Amino acid sequence: MIRPLIALAASALIAAPAAAATYTAKTSTQAPAKIPARDILWTCGSGACTGSTQNSRPAVLCQGLAKQAGRIESFVVDGREMAAADLERCNASARGDKSQALANAR
């Protein structure tokens, strides 16, 4: 009696698709309304961008957005804010970031 229930539960877990994470980024400048980047389509307005994907890492998504939208003030993944050190590394990729240009010159 219990074996069929275990088999059913196991098959449900295997068949369930991975849930997509939701990302929100506050930008320091006004970004375009739509920004396609790597594994996500960002929708931007009022100084913030949002998107959802299950196929990438937060650091990669943050850097991709920073390259197109400029400096990121905050980056939130499913309600959890990115650590300050990680956000700093993300912003090294920001469009127009002078510290990145200096690092590349060395």
Rank of each mutant, 00 (worst) to 15 (best):
E73P: 01
I6D: 12
N104Q: 14
E81C: 02
I40P: 00
K34Q: 15
R106M: 14
W42K: 01
T50M: 06
D97M: 07
E73W: 02
G64W: 03
Q54I: 01
C44G: 05
S52G: 03
I35W: 01
A48Q: 14
Q54V: 03
A19D: 07
A69H: 03
A48S: 15
D86Y: 08
A83Q: 14
V76W: 07
A83K: 11
V60Q: 14
G51A: 07
A48N: 12
A48F: 12
T53N: 02
Q100P: 00
G96T: 06
G64R: 04
A94T: 07
I35T: 00
F75D: 00
M82G: 00
A103N: 12
I2P: 14
T53P: 01
S93Y: 05
I2M: 10
A10Q: 08
M82R: 01
K34H: 15
W42Y: 06
A18E: 04
T27Q: 08
L65R: 07
S99T: 11
N55G: 08
C49D: 03
L13Y: 07
A20N: 06
R106T: 13
K98G: 05
A103P: 04
A69K: 09
W42A: 01
S52Q: 08
T24M: 03
N91Y: 10
A59R: 07
G70C: 11
A18N: 04
R80P: 02
D78Y: 07
R89T: 10
R95V: 05
K26R: 08
V60W: 12
Q54M: 02
A83Y: 06
T43V: 11
P17L: 10
I14T: 10
P17V: 09
S74P: 12
T43R: 15
T50D: 05
P17A: 10
P36R: 14
K26G: 00
Q63R: 14
T22L: 06
L65G: 03
G51H: 03
A9S: 10
L41C: 08
T43M: 11
K98V: 12
R38E: 09
A21I: 01
Q54S: 13
G70K: 04
R71Y: 10
M82K: 02
D97S: 04
R71S: 07
